[in-house]
Amino acid sequence: MDIPLPAFIPDNLINKDHMNNETHISSYSSLAIVLIILLLLTMISVTVTGFHLGPFAVAAALIIASIKVASVITYFMHVKFESLFMKLMISGVFVIFALIIIITFIDYLLR
């Protein structure tokens, strides 16, 4: 009467981290393009501050920062070319952190 192992998580999916033997080499030009995008986003972020968006200023700044962080992780840190497991692990960590903030704010916002 053993509970059957879940078929929805095949072992080869979890074990993807064993399987990437060839390393991807990022080209110089692609890294340069990412830097240009990052600098542009920084410029936008600084400019937007001047608009006095009120409560949306924080949201705008954080959204831009998140896009920047995502591109650093994806391209500079090569996560785009990592195994599926690594991608899941990295996004999972950010999700857990977000949950911790949200749950703390159940207290602070509804007091």
């Binding site: 920084t42 972020s45 600084v46 501050t49 200023a57 924080v58 700044a61 954080l62 831009i64 920062a65 920047k68 962080v69 650093v72 992780i73 500079f76 840190m77």
Partner: peptide, 23 residues
């Protein structure tokens, strides 16, 4: 080391707007 350095950058990307920009 590069990964570590990128993390330093990541943290700054959040610190910068939170401390300097949200005025």
């Amino acid at each position: 080391s590069a990964l570590y350095w990128h993390l330093v950058d990541l943290i700054w990307i959040f610190l910068f707007p939170l401390l300097y920009l949200i005025t």
